[in-house]
Amino acid sequence: MIDANAYFGGWAVRTLGVRDPAEFLAAMDRCGIDVAVVSSLKGMVHNTRDGNEEVIDLVEAYPSRFIGLCCVNPRLGAEEILTELDRCLRSGLRGVRLYPPPQLYDLDDWELMEPLMEEAERRGVPVYVTKMLTHGIPYGTTPFRSIKSFVERYKGVNIVATGMNYRDRLDALRLLRKAENFYVELSLDSGVEAARWYVEKAGSDRILMGTGYCLFYPLVGVAKVSTARIPEEDKRKILHENAARLFSLER
């Protein structure tokens, strides 16, 4: 089972952060998760380079358990972010994580985004876009309209939207039907029967199970899919196969 969206490291809000790999792995083992796709919370809201360093260390220590995403802030300039992306990918990270509101840029600022997305396409790595981290946390929300424009513009890059709630479903459904490079990850969707809703309306090929651990109770994310009223074949795709395909993992 692959957790397609997890967060690692310190966190200023309450005591949610998990900096200890052993604690993180224990939570994964308890939930039956083999591999977690992780982003650094520090990289998302404070310092991209330092945050990426945490994730590189984690992936180097446990290469069979973690897939790391590289946080970049396009506002820092093309040269700097391409250098950082290159460093991270050479160090074993396998995708990109964007969270525009705390880093003070717009996802549809094409002048900023073009160099990064050209490079992501050239290297064939997925790009994760964060709509929001969690409810009530003051780091802001990426407008869905800009996610839609972004997905439609960069058709050659697989783009995963995280932090989508039930309020986003109808918009996400339209985009899933239009754009084959668009993926929806479920950890923040607290609405009723999320997996079944998407599978019945858009199929299961681009839906991903995520837990949002260390921010959320990890078992919730797993149970949303494992208890869902959908065929076993669809569960396998959401729990494992889609993420494996996205990151070119061997089965």
Binding site: Y166, V192, V220, A223, K224
Partner: peptide, 12 residues
């Protein structure tokens, strides 16, 4: 429910 999924509270 049926706005939110019972699975969220059950597994919390």
């Amino acid at each position: 429910m049926p706005l939110l999924d019972p699975v969220v509270s059950v597994y919390k």
